[in-house]
C-alpha cells in the first residue's frame, strides 16, 4: 500500500486530497500513473498535464522511479509560492 497525495488545482479537480493505493512490487511511478488513468476523467487530464510534478517521499521524482510499500507519492502543479 502506498499513499497518494494531490495538491492545489489537482486536489480541487479530483475532490480528493489523499488516498491509499495498492501496488504490486516491483512497481514504478509510471505504473501507478497508468493504473490511475484507467479511472478516466478527471485523472486522465491531470496525469496528461505536461506541467505535472511528482514527489516520492517528499523529494521531487521522475516517472521511472521505483516505489516500495509505504511510500508517499504526491502529484502537484508547478509551484507558485513566495
Amino acid at each position: 500500500m502506498i499513499t497518494l497525495l494531490y495538491f492545489a488545482r489537482y486536489r480541487e479537480a479530483l475532490g480528493l486530497d489523499s488516498e491509499q493505493f495498492s501496488i504490486t512490487c516491483p512497481c514504478s511511478v509510471q505504473d501507478v500513473i497508468e493504473q490511475l488513468k484507467q479511472r478516466g476523467e478527471p485523472w486522465l487530464s491531470i496525469l496528461a498535464d505536461s506541467k505535472l510534478m511528482l514527489a516520492v517521499n517528499q523529494t521531487i521524482a521522475t516517472p521511472d522511479q521505483a516505489l516500495t510499500d509505504g511510500d508517499e507519492l504526491a502529484f502537484f502543479p508547478p509551484i507558485t509560492g513566495g
Binding site: 495538491f7 492545489a8 488545482r9 480541487e12 506541467k51 514527489a55 502537484f76 502543479p77 508547478p78 509551484i79 507558485t80 509560492g81 513566495g82
Partner: peptide, 18 residues
Amino acid sequence: APFWKKERGKQGERWLDA
C-alpha cells in the same frame, strides 16, 4: 518549495500559473 497560490478577486478565483 511546494506552495501554491489561489487568487480571489472581482473576476472570481483562479490558481496561479508558474
